[in-house]
Design a protein around this nucleic acid. Sequence first.
DNA 1: GCCGACTACTTGTCATGACGTGTTGACAAC
DNA 2: GTTGTCAACACGTCATGACAAGTAGTCGGC
Lengths: 253, 253
Amino acid sequence: MIDRKSGVPAFRQVAADLREKIVSGEFSPGAKLPSEHDLVDTYGVSRPTVREAVDVLRGEGLVTSEHGRGVFVRPPASIQRIARSRLSREARDRNRGAFLADAAASGFTPSTSVKIRFESADTRAAGHLAIDEGVEVTVRDRVMRADGLVVQLAVSRLPRDLTRGTAIEDVDTGPGGTYARLEESGRAIGSFAEHVGARMPTPAEATQLQLADGVPVITVTRVAYAVDGTPLEMNDMTLPADRYELSYEWPAD
Amino acid sequence: MIDRKSGVPAFRQVAADLREKIVSGEFSPGAKLPSEHDLVDTYGVSRPTVREAVDVLRGEGLVTSEHGRGVFVRPPASIQRIARSRLSREARDRNRGAFLADAAASGFTPSTSVKIRFESADTRAAGHLAIDEGVEVTVRDRVMRADGLVVQLAVSRLPRDLTRGTAIEDVDTGPGGTYARLEESGRAIGSFAEHVGARMPTPAEATQLQLADGVPVITVTRVAYAVDGTPLEMNDMTLPADRYELSYEWPAD
DNA sequence: GCCGACTACTTGTCATGACGTGTTGACAAC
DNA sequence: GTTGTCAACACGTCATGACAAGTAGTCGGC
């Protein structure tokens, strides 16, 4: 099984062999891999070598290991979508917010918890909101859950001048959410921009989102602009990459 | 330094301490971490424990290790921003394609290599292109380089019926690229859709894109539709997440 | 002065051995 | 039939030891 003279490290050969068996379907999704002890016998290597091989696969997001039970092939994740259309004014009128609209469409039970705080704008926030650094911003820090499971983190920031005296500074923003309150105060949304990236989660994020090893997070920074182009709100969202796919569409010209 | 009675594994405590020193700036970007031998002395743990701690940080994309030299704090990568406006017809008329437009804007020397092949549509391709499984598709497999470095992979698929007798089946599609050829044959692009996700790279992708450990890839599937809504082309792009950020903007309603 | 060999230091790989802790199922006690 | 105990087995953690291989600086020979 293992070619000792090939120059390829043994643990990589074991990892490659297991990977091939997984993608080929020999180990089907959800199936349990042979125990480390069995793999030691199968490949004729030591246990640390087997574990290093499994570490590689876990880093690729192919398997998860469960203490006392075994190592399992990761089943493909169910995919939710965030479509651009869910931010339409029509949708906002019907719902309290975009996340609840997704919930209605996907059939899970949504819940969110919100913490409000006020801070002074850092460089990044100042840039997106076109304000000076240090200006006071209202921060809405939200945790979104589906059937009790945390599935999304969102941190929304607005210049405090726009939120003073509105329900945006309350835990419950009321029907239509933040954007509806902005429009009520005479600041209609003219356009949105989203900036999308991906990275590995911080340990805190991995814990909060219950991420398996080898699962990146998608970061979305959405900026809402008034009709005249003034930035009104920036929203930093953190999504588990194994549970989300983002969709955008636009006319060709 | 290490609390043996806390229940927290030693390697995690070492990882947490090093992580804190990195994010706080005590180890600045590009700086060399103390050698494994030094860390063994500092924390009073064995070398495998130190290595396991470094493995954690590498998996988070915080550090890279270089054989024979040391372990280094990953400097932040310069981010290439891709905006949706790059697909405007105007831009297509001026350039040969979107990637070359980016190159002109950013000042690097672009080069691409293309391989053309024909295959029968699998389930996913058939779904996106609204054709039956098994129907012949033209596949343009492209590798994009900036200053010689591979920075992007793109696999474009079109129903062969649309490409027969056009330059789309040639290595050089001519001015304006694939979309210009489609329009010439009477199939104007009506709209685009992009589906964005992220995952860890396969070993092949990691090699080709020269990805450090702990760097995910962003996957973008762009579908181009004719004015009547018929799918014309799907394009699977793979981007290193540490070098790219995608931007989308759209009017509020 | 230049260049090669040598050496010290670095990370990479692998084996062996030990103990801890969570899971499961068999089996006995109730 | 239910429940509690316990052994077997799984993965998690950690130490010790060894050798391989890449890097960079030193030093001697030329």
